[in-house]
């Protein structure tokens, strides 16, 4: 039956190994095997977006992937956003969420950050409508979204006006 498998999964540049059941969700691997509890779990059926992480650079639902499917891929979670920054320093998108009150209880925030980070590298001018569509895949019960839109705009302004970009720093 459902034989356990040995996996070695790269999360934020570190390898986490474990023997897992094939049915173990990637979200649970991240939280329980790797101990990275920044990734939150809300609905476990793809609707809320709280569990969003990046796999090979693309935002995906970690509750809709099995851990065995992440073998050999690069997983990035919210914890990885401050890699290479000095103690206490935040990623520009996180900093903007902080300043613009893009979060209240914070439960949804890691998912939003993982979903929205690629917008930081998008060279096009984005309308509010386009930003709203980009965050439509994440639910927030607290903010009403307006301040999340403002946070994205602030972070993009800063990054585009030539302040340090996350890509350059890496």
């Amino acid at each position: 039956m459902s034989e356990r498998r040995r996996v070695e999964i790269d999360i934020n540049g570190e390898t986490y190994g474990a023997e897992v059941e094939p049915r173990l969700l990637l979200s649970d691997f991240i939280r329980h095997e790797a101990g990275l509890t920044g990734t939150h779990v809300g609905c476990e059926h793809g609707v809320c977006g709280a569990c969003t992480v990046q796999v090979d650079g693309d935002p995906v639902r970690s509750c809709l992937m099995f851990a065995v499917q992440a073998q050999g891929r690069e997983v990035r979670t919210v914890e990885g956003m401050t890699d290479g920054l000095s103690e206490g320093e935040l990623h520009p998108l996180q900093q903007a969420f902080h300043e613009k009150h893009g979060l209240q209880c914070g439960f949804c925030t890691p998912g939003f950050l993982m979903s929205l980070e690629p917008l930081m590298l998008d060279e096009r001018d984005l309308t509010d409508q386009e930003i709203r569509e980009a965050l439509a895949g994440n639910l927030c019960r607290c903010t009403g979204y307006q301040n999340i839109v403002e946070s994205v705009k602030l972070a993009r302004e800063r990054l585009r006006s030539g302040a340090e970009s996350p890509a350059e720093r890496e």
Binding site: M1, S2, E3, R5, E21, P22, L25, E44
Partner: peptide
């Protein structure tokens, strides 16, 4: 919830 037990094949 969590998925039920299954045998996994990855051809």
């Amino acid at each position: 919830m969590k998925p039920p037990v299954f045998d996994y094949h990855d051809p």
